[in-house]
């Protein structure tokens, strides 16, 4: 008995210690160093001095209009993306689990955009929004819809939502499919015998039992949308006039554009706390709604 626990402990250590080491060196330690940087004023050149300024960076970021605007745009983007990605993902998953003949083909097609990296997607859509849209506008005369979306502040943000949805909807679809397939058929059949229609079966049986999938999908889209950078960079570069500069890009520009390492780092810490708080709240709320059958 003692022997067994001993070897168990050995196995446990063998698998966790390397992981713990890696996690500590690439996540924990840089994170702590990062917190340290947020209290200094530094331009990022190793040879130049780091001056300790206490909480000045945190005070300054609250006065930074560009940062606050960027925060608002990020929230706007995240809410729109969250709704659109999950509504579409869920719709796709219901569609492809309806045992249609094209189910498998449709599943592949919906998932395909997710296999293309965000940078490439951004450049492809940049071409669509600028050149193709303009071309369509010229040809069809519908230039109130088809114009260069990327040069107008509001439509450029919508363009980002569309590209992000295009990328993520297929991914959430896969998770929803797994959830739907995990619901036993007899529940739906019993309800049907009792005379429940499609809408009642969806809202009373499928959605409550899908709650675990909602938890995961909402978490993934929420954190993904908050942290988005690649699509932002390749599609709009934050323009026009910084109207689509989201959180991550604002931090990047603060650090590399202006060379304010400390201030950028302080923003990153605030950003981290915000993302963690929002996503944790979401997970707690949706977890509570999960039911067992």
């Amino acid at each position: 008995m003692i022997l067994l626990t001993k070897s168990n402990k050995g196995w446990f250590a063998l698998f966790t210690v390397p992981l713990l080491l890696v996690f500590t060196t690439v996540v924990i330690i840089p994170f702590i160093i990062g917190i340290g940087y947020s209290f200094v004023s530094w331009d990022g050149i190793p040879a130049n001095p780091k001056v300790f300024v206490g909480l000045d960076n945190y005070i300054e970021l609250l006065k930074d209009d560009r940062f606050l605007t960027s925060a608002w745009h990020t929230i706007e983007f995240t809410v729109l993306a969250l709704v659109l990605v999950n509504v579409l993902g869920l719709a796709f998953s219901l569609l492809v689990t309806m045992k249609l003949r094209i189910s498998n083909a449709a599943r592949t097609m919906f998932f395909l955009p997710n296999l293309i990296g965000g940078l490439i997607l951004g450049y492809i859509w940049q071409f669509i929004f600028t050149d193709v849209f303009k071309f369509l506008g010229d040809k069809t005369g519908w230039d109130s819809l088809f114009f260069n979306w990327l040069i107008h502040p509001q439509s450029a943000l919508y363009a980002m939502v569309i590209v992000f949805t295009w990328q993520m909807a297929g991914y959430t679809m896969i998770i929803y499919i797994a959830g739907i397939q995990g619901i036993p058929d007899e529940l739906g059949e019993a309800a049907r015998v009792d005379g429940a229609n499609l809408w009642q079966r969806l809202t009373k049986i499928v959605f409550p039992l899908l709650m675990p999938s909602f938890t995961i999908c909402l978490f993934l889209t929420l954190s993904g949308a908050f942290k988005i950078f690649d699509v932002n960079l390749s599609l709009t570069k934050g323009g026009p006039n910084n109207a689509t500069e989201l959180f991550a890009m604002n931090i990047f520009n603060e650090i590399f554009g202006y060379g304010h390492y400390g201030l950028g780092q302080a923003k990153a810490i605030v950003f981290f706390i915000l993302v963690a708080a929002v996503t944790l709240t979401q997970v707690i709320i949706t977890k509570k709604k999960e039911v067992q059958y």
Partner: peptide, 9 residues
């Protein structure tokens, strides 16, 4: 550049 973008838009 952002100021100029704003001007042209």
């Amino acid at each position: 550049a952002p100021a100029a973008q704003q001007f042209f838009l």
